[in-house]
Amino acid sequence: MDAAFIEQCADPLLKPAIVEQFVSAVGPGDPLAVTVKSGGRLILVPKPKTPDEAMEVIRQYGGQAVVRVGLTQFPAGVGVKDPSELKPDLVDPCENLRIGTEMFARIMRIVAKWYGNATSKEVFPLVFEDAIYAWNTGQFEGQSVFQAEDPGGAIVDRKESVPDITDAPAGATLSQSEAERSDEKEIGAAGIRVDLSRIGGQK
């Protein structure tokens, strides 16, 4: 991803390396990508070729299914009461990266708070992995992360060098509580389905 694009559009609280890792982990790399799921199942939709086509698909399924959009697969419908209120900004690459990274930064702060706001680089892979999990499911520790209040605080390991989430430090071991959380995630991963688009529609 172009460094100038990240600097211009992404949340400045996230280092470029974190932004790249986030987009790589959650998005297909296509600013017009629209993913629709209902009842945990993927709904095949025509691949949009223009922003107008993308918005047509988004509005068609908004309020009826979980719709993820753009580079960051931002959940369309968050904070929106009616699908007609959805704006073309969702499929604008810069705007999608801006709102996506702002939301992800907030989720990372929520997760980091659970970890006691630890700032060591050894903790970062755990925080990042849980934040990606929360982004994909919409949930962390029983709360909707897209509607949760921002706890504030710094994001751990804001250095240029970001360890890969699959690389655990040599000799590192999980505490008992962390190991239990890992087991709980494995057990509940398949069953957690959150229709984010309906949250705004029922208010």
Rank of each mutant, 00 (worst) to 15 (best):
D150N: 13
G171E: 05
D157T: 12
W135G: 05
E141F: 00
S175H: 13
A154D: 10
S144R: 13
N136H: 05
G153F: 01
V162G: 10
Q176K: 06
S161Y: 09
A131C: 04
Q143M: 15
I132N: 09
G142F: 08
A170Y: 11
D164C: 07
W135M: 00
F128H: 07
L174N: 12
D167M: 11
P169S: 03
I165G: 13
P169R: 03
V162Y: 02
A148L: 03
W135V: 00
V127H: 10
V127G: 08
N136V: 03
S144N: 15
S175V: 11
E129D: 15
S144C: 14
N136L: 09
N136W: 00
D150M: 06
P163T: 04
Q143P: 07
V145I: 12
Q176E: 07
L126V: 04
E141A: 12
A170G: 01
A154E: 10
G138A: 00
D164H: 14
V127S: 09
V145H: 03
Q176N: 06
E141G: 00
K159P: 00
Y133T: 03
Q143R: 14
V156C: 08
G138C: 03
G138I: 01
I155G: 04
D150E: 06
F146M: 10
D130F: 09
W135H: 08
V145K: 07
F140T: 02
D150C: 08
G138L: 01
T166F: 10
S144K: 10
A170R: 14
G138P: 09
T166V: 06
D167P: 01
R158G: 14
S161I: 04
R158C: 07
T173F: 06
V156Q: 03
S161P: 00
P151V: 00
K159F: 10
E141Q: 13
N136C: 00
A148H: 02
E160D: 15
F146N: 12
A168M: 12
N136I: 02
G152Y: 06
I132T: 03
W135R: 05
V162Q: 14
D157V: 10
E160I: 11
A154S: 10
D150I: 01
V127Y: 09
V156P: 05
A148I: 04
R158F: 08
V156K: 02
T173Y: 04
Q147P: 00
G153D: 06
A170S: 11
T173K: 15
V162S: 13
A168I: 04
Y133K: 00
I132W: 09
E149H: 05
D167R: 14
D157E: 12
Q147M: 10
Q139N: 11
P163C: 05
E160P: 13
E141D: 13
F146R: 11
A134Y: 05
T137P: 09
V162C: 13
E160G: 15
A172N: 08
D130C: 08
L126I: 05
F128Y: 04
I155H: 02
L174Y: 14
Q176Y: 02
V145A: 11
I165A: 11
